[in-house]
């Protein structure tokens, strides 16, 4: 089935940036009530830039792969660049068709990331 493309299954089984970030400047957790996914993202921020990021928690292949790919994309980016990212960025990054209900899974890491950046800045 299209949603479970090679890249999704690869990231699900071999997630990048998975674990606890010891030197996190900020850590934010949230959950998706639809499927009970829980995700926590830690960001290490230096001079307005994300220098490292890790995620932990459990969830479906879409939410886990999305977190893995998203963190890989944003490490090295400035906070302003991250704030400027649109949802479409996540859809393009995943590159698979998502059903309406699964969009929430795909966006869980994105929502937490934005929350973390905003909380850090305030």
């Amino acid at each position: 089935m299209d949603m479970y493309a090679e890249n999704i299954l690869f990231h699900y089984k071999n997630p990048l940036h998975h674990g606890e970030l010891e030197r996190a400047s900020i850590t934010v957790a949230d959950s998706n009530p639809l499927c009970g996914d829980k995700l926590e993202i830690g960001l290490q921020i230096e001079n307005g830039k994300i220098v490292d990021a890790m995620f932990s928690g459990e969830g479906c292949a879409i939410s886990q792969a999305s977190a893995s790919m998203l963190l890989d994309e944003v490490i090295g980016k400035s906070l302003d660049e991250v704030k400027g990212l649109e949802k479409q960025f996540v859809y393009d990054m995943l590159g698979v068709p998502l059903t309406t209900n699964r969009v929430k899974c795909a966006l869980l890491s994105f929502v937490i990331l934005q929350q973390a950046v905003n909380t850090f800045e305030s």
Partner: peptide
């Protein structure tokens, strides 16, 4: 396998 993924594949 997360149950959500089980459900999606069974749906297909």
């Amino acid at each position: 396998v997360h149950p959500h993924d089980v459900g999606s594949i069974m749906n297909s």
